[in-house]
Simulated scan of single mutants.
Amino acid sequence: MSFDPATLRYDARGLIPAIAQDAETDEVLMLAWMNAEAVARTLETGRVTYWSRSRQAFWEKGATSGHVQELVEMRLDCDRDTLLLRVRQTGPACHTGRRSCFYTAVRDGAEVEIMAPG
């Protein structure tokens, strides 16, 4: 059975959240958004492409920074409204220079930075 990106459940803006996870360590790296064409481009090229809501343009991860995400596997959740992208990450995933965008924890009611830039 072949996969059709149009069968996913997109929001009213035509977007679906995509969680990037390191395929080797299972570390959650980032969350971004995709539309049907970004999903199709990612599957065609093997390099993760997102949709930038602020720029209203496609954004191939690492195209300018070199911090690419190579797709290992795309998974769909049970409702088909969220994607899990298992990737091979080159360099940091976060634009702040950190491995993950999830570098702030809430501990004992306070925000704590748990990861410094690489």
Score class of each variant (00 low, 15 high):
Leu71Asp: 06
Pro92Ala: 15
Glu27Gly: 04
Met115Gly: 02
Ser52Ala: 11
Gly62Cys: 11
Pro117Phe: 09
Ala12Tyr: 06
Met34Cys: 07
Asp108Ile: 02
Met115Asn: 01
Met1Asp: 09
Arg13Trp: 04
Ala12Leu: 07
Ser100Gly: 03
Ala36Lys: 15
Pro17Asn: 10
Phe58Pro: 00
Arg107Pro: 00
Asp4Gly: 02
Thr45Phe: 10
Asn35Val: 05
Arg9Tyr: 02
Ala110Met: 10
Ala32Asn: 04
His95Trp: 08
Val87Gln: 05
Gly91Ala: 05
Met74Pro: 01
Ser65His: 03
Trp33Val: 06
Arg80Cys: 01
Glu37Asp: 15
Met74Leu: 15
Asp77Asn: 14
Asp22Pro: 00
Val72Ile: 12
Asp77Arg: 09
Val87Glu: 09
Thr7Met: 03
Ile114Leu: 06
Tyr10Asn: 05
Trp33Leu: 07
Phe102Gln: 08
Met1Asn: 09
Asp79His: 13
Phe58Ala: 02
Phe58Thr: 02
Val87Pro: 03
Thr96His: 03
Pro17Val: 07
Pro5Arg: 13
Thr90His: 15
Val87Met: 09
Met30Ile: 06
Asp26Ser: 14
Gly118Thr: 09
Asp4Glu: 15
Ala38His: 08
Glu73Arg: 14
Phe58Gly: 00
Leu8Asp: 12
Arg41Pro: 00
Val72Gln: 10
Ala38Asp: 10
Val48Asp: 01
Leu8Met: 14
Thr25Pro: 02
Trp51Met: 01
Cys94Thr: 12
Ala105Ser: 12
Leu15Gln: 08
Glu44Pro: 00
